[in-house]
């Protein structure tokens, strides 16, 4: 599988350039023009990313999440889900790098092949940073009213996290 991953991009580039030459496209000029547009896209995302990173960093570094989580403790003990997975589940939709560092800690403290290690890995691998994606993609094209997208995305994340807990419990 890793081999497929590694060879996919070189083959894609080869194929596109080859096809362009066959169809008599000025591949170099066209590439540069496209890249110019990419630079504009990249720079226009800055203000949106700045806003989101400011908010997320304040939320995470102030430890207010741990405080909120302490109220949820009893509930999670009741349904027998390890408490240590909660920050992971809450951070995953908000920040990819933050949840990755939580995953890193879990793997270090509990071992990669522990139940919670596998669960955290599955959650990280099966969902994506919803809030980041919405901010970046809508911001880039100047959409202000995002309608129902946020809560559909978060609801799907919740389904993903619950499925992870169930699937990992059954298979391991």
């Amino acid at each position: 599988m890793t081999l497929i991953s590694n060879i996919f991009i070189p083959l894609l580039v080869l194929f596109v350039v080859l096809y362009g030459i066959i169809k008599k496209v000025n591949v170099y000029d066209v590439f540069v023009n496209g890249a110019k547009e990419g630079v504009e896209i990249g720079i226009s995302t800055f203000p949106y990313m700045l806003g989101m990173i400011l908010g997320v960093n304040i939320l995470i570094k102030s430890n207010v999440l741990d405080f909120i989580l302490s109220f949820l403790n009893p509930f999670f003990e009741l349904i027998k889900v390890p408490m240590d997975i909660l920050p992971m589940a809450l951070l995953r939709p908000v920040s990819g790098s933050a949840s990755l560092s939580v995953l890193n800690n879990i793997l270090q403290n509990f071992g990669a092949d522990s139940f919670i290690g596998r669960l955290a890995s599955t959650i990280q691998g099966s969902t994506d940073t919803t809030i980041y994606i919405l901010t970046l993609y809508f911001g880039t094209v100047g959409i202000k009213k995002i309608r129902y997208s946020l809560w559909v995305g978060l609801l799907a994340d919740l389904v993903g996290i619950i499925s992870s807990i169930i699937v990992v419990s059954i298979l391991f």
Binding site: L12, V13, V16, V17, Y19, G20, I22, K23, V25, V27, V30, F31, V32, N33, G34, A35, K36, E37, G38, V39, I41, G42, I43, T45, F46, M49, L50, I53, L54, N57
Partner: peptide, 30 residues
């Protein structure tokens, strides 16, 4: 620090965006 973090992220991302919009432009023209 968040402005610096953002700049680092954008700096990491936008060359990649430019690379792929370049390649994609060939696919579009052809």
């Amino acid at each position: 620090e968040s402005s610096k973090t953002t700049l680092e992220m954008v700096l990491k991302m936008f060359p990649l965006v430019a690379l792929w919009t370049g390649i994609m432009n060939i696919a579009k023209e052809s």
